Computed example of a mutant assay.
Amino acid sequence: MASWVIMELDRNSSNWTKLIEGIVRLEKKIFPKHESLARSFDEELKKKNNGLLYSEVDGEVTGYVMYSWPSSLCASITKLAVKENYRRQGLGEALLKAAIQKCRTRNVHRISLHVDPLRTPAMNLYKKFGFQVDNLIEGYYSSDRNAFRMYMDFDTN
């Protein structure tokens, strides 16, 4: 298994623009246009209580995960993407694990996410981490694409 270096996107970073461009390129490749945040990435990241972790190889973004913690009780994983030629190598898992850890430092009780039930590798990854299907949300992505809402609860003791 490859060893990944996962970094937190820092607004004050000297390579901010280059990183955002790399993330937007990946976003456009992976997600259908209406689901893509490509045009609003900068705005999304300016929002309070939003974070983004990414990995890169030779200056090229290979994957990222976005998360938010709208309240002290819950957080959500809003995006998880891995470049095609880096899939099935543990990168998605490493990104998800890092995002969960970031959310845990906020002492949230629950992390939730939405996933297309047809994206089997993603479903399997979330289940492996202990996410459970909460319910099916019809037409979540588009009129003909549903989503499972999944969640993971933490002990509050």
Score class of each variant (00 low, 15 high):
residue 46 K to H: 06
residue 127 K to N: 14
residue 128 K to P: 01
residue 79 K to H: 15
residue 80 L to G: 02
residue 74 C to P: 00
residue 89 Q to Y: 07
residue 34 H to K: 13
residue 85 N to D: 15
residue 49 N to Q: 13
residue 115 V to D: 03
residue 138 E to M: 09
residue 63 G to E: 00
residue 151 Y to S: 10
residue 53 L to C: 04
residue 147 A to N: 06
residue 92 G to C: 04
residue 1 M to W: 06
residue 149 R to P: 01
residue 78 T to V: 14
residue 103 C to F: 03
residue 21 E to Y: 12
residue 83 K to F: 09
residue 106 R to A: 05
residue 80 L to C: 05
residue 43 E to V: 15
residue 47 K to M: 06
residue 17 T to S: 13
residue 70 P to C: 10
residue 91 L to C: 07
residue 116 D to G: 07
residue 58 D to I: 11
residue 21 E to F: 11
residue 125 L to S: 04
residue 144 D to N: 13
residue 19 L to T: 15
residue 146 N to C: 08
residue 123 M to V: 15
residue 3 S to T: 14
residue 156 T to P: 00
residue 96 L to C: 05
residue 24 V to D: 02
residue 57 V to H: 12
residue 113 L to W: 05
residue 46 K to A: 03
residue 144 D to W: 11
residue 43 E to T: 07
residue 11 R to Y: 08
residue 12 N to T: 15
residue 7 M to C: 09
residue 119 R to P: 02
residue 130 G to K: 10
residue 140 Y to R: 01
residue 17 T to A: 14
residue 133 V to T: 06
residue 74 C to A: 13
residue 37 L to Y: 12
residue 31 F to C: 09
residue 17 T to H: 11
residue 54 Y to S: 03
residue 65 V to F: 04
residue 87 R to G: 08
residue 133 V to W: 02
residue 33 K to T: 14
residue 23 I to P: 00
residue 71 S to T: 15
residue 9 L to R: 00
residue 102 K to E: 11
residue 28 K to H: 09
residue 14 S to C: 10
residue 83 K to E: 10
residue 72 S to F: 06
residue 59 G to S: 07
residue 114 H to I: 07
residue 25 R to D: 15
residue 128 K to Q: 13
residue 97 K to A: 12
residue 107 N to P: 00
residue 107 N to D: 04
residue 63 G to V: 04
residue 38 A to R: 04
residue 103 C to W: 03
residue 112 S to N: 07
residue 31 F to A: 09
residue 41 F to I: 15
residue 74 C to F: 05
residue 88 R to F: 07
residue 93 E to F: 12
residue 155 D to Q: 08
residue 16 W to T: 01
residue 124 N to E: 14
residue 157 N to F: 12
residue 75 A to C: 15
residue 84 E to Q: 13
residue 19 L to S: 06
residue 152 M to S: 01
residue 42 D to W: 08
residue 20 I to L: 15
residue 131 F to V: 14
residue 6 I to E: 06
residue 36 S to W: 14
residue 2 A to P: 05
residue 113 L to A: 05
residue 6 I to H: 06
residue 83 K to Y: 05
residue 147 A to H: 03
residue 27 E to L: 11
residue 77 I to P: 00
residue 123 M to A: 07
residue 48 K to F: 06
residue 111 I to Q: 02
residue 92 G to T: 02
residue 53 L to W: 04
residue 20 I to K: 04
residue 82 V to E: 03
residue 116 D to Q: 12
residue 58 D to Q: 10
residue 117 P to V: 15
residue 157 N to H: 12
residue 67 Y to W: 15
residue 30 I to D: 02
residue 26 L to Y: 10
residue 27 E to M: 10
residue 37 L to G: 04
residue 154 F to L: 00
residue 140 Y to A: 03
residue 144 D to R: 08
residue 88 R to N: 13
residue 59 G to W: 12
residue 2 A to M: 12
residue 102 K to H: 10
residue 48 K to Y: 07
residue 24 V to K: 06
residue 130 G to Q: 09
residue 141 Y to F: 14
residue 1 M to L: 09
residue 136 L to H: 09
residue 57 V to R: 12
residue 52 L to M: 13
residue 131 F to E: 02
residue 8 E to Q: 07
residue 62 T to R: 04
residue 1 M to G: 08
residue 142 S to Q: 07
